[in-house]
């Protein structure tokens, strides 16, 4: 169990960042704070806030896709109204129009990047700047290097991929 003050602090930070980016934390505060505790526990034992509801390997490179917010949050919000842990919920769930339930694991079900390669094949060959894509929320920016932190979802630089 992480320190209560730290839980509050991270909860408030995630909550304001979520709202600023158009996301919402689960309004069930007890539930959400338990997950925030899980993030702090994982930060402590692995060195990064791996998803509390998934088994992390402890190898950061292998776990990049499940560092919170994970690469699966946004598609799960679209399909189920919540991320896998239900730390983040959709507008519909927030408004009480949709009930929360535990949802299937998407992580192994996809071929990483399969769709992307095809799409980039039709793009122009020469660009003034490379375009970087945030793997968490899809934010795109054209600049030499990706930003330190995604301005939309706050994912770190290492979660960006060269899109074209």
């Amino acid at each position: 169990m992480a320190d209560q003050g730290k839980i509050e602090e991270l909860f408030n930070k995630l909550s304001s960042e979520a709202e600023a980016g158009g996301y919402h934390l689960n309004p069930d505060k007890d539930f959400t704070k338990e997950l925030v505790n899980g993030l702090l526990v994982n930060e402590e034992r692995y060195g990064y806030p791996a998803c509390p509801c998934r088994l992390a390997s402890g190898n950061k490179a292998a776990d990049l896709d499940i560092i919170c917010p994970c690469d699966y949050r946004d598609p799960d919000l679209t399909d189920y109204g919540a991320c896998y842990c239900a730390l983040y919920v959709s507008d519909e769930v927030l408004a009480g129009r949709k009930k929360l339930a535990s949802i299937p694991e998407r992580r192994l079900a996809i071929e990483p990047q399969a769709g992307l390669k095809e799409k980039s094949a039709i793009l122009p060959e020469k660009l003034a700047f490379p375009v970087w894509r945030c793997k968490v929320c899809g934010y795109l920016c054209a600049r030499e290097q990706p930003p330190e932190v995604c301005p939309i979802c706050k994912a770190k630089k290492e979660r960006f991929e060269k899109f074209f």
């Binding site: 997950l35 505790n37 899980g38 994982n42 509390p52 509801c53 088994l55 535990s102």
Partner: peptide, 28 residues
């Protein structure tokens, strides 16, 4: 289960409420 997973805790709680005998392990 995982010790940090809230859905896992909900399953434990439900089994406790149903007073079912079970074995569990927190794999993490």
């Amino acid at each position: 289960t995982l010790s940090t997973c809230v859905w896992c805790k909900k399953v434990k709680k439900l089994l406790n409420e149903l007073k079912v005998a079970y074995d569990y392990v927190d794999v993490d």
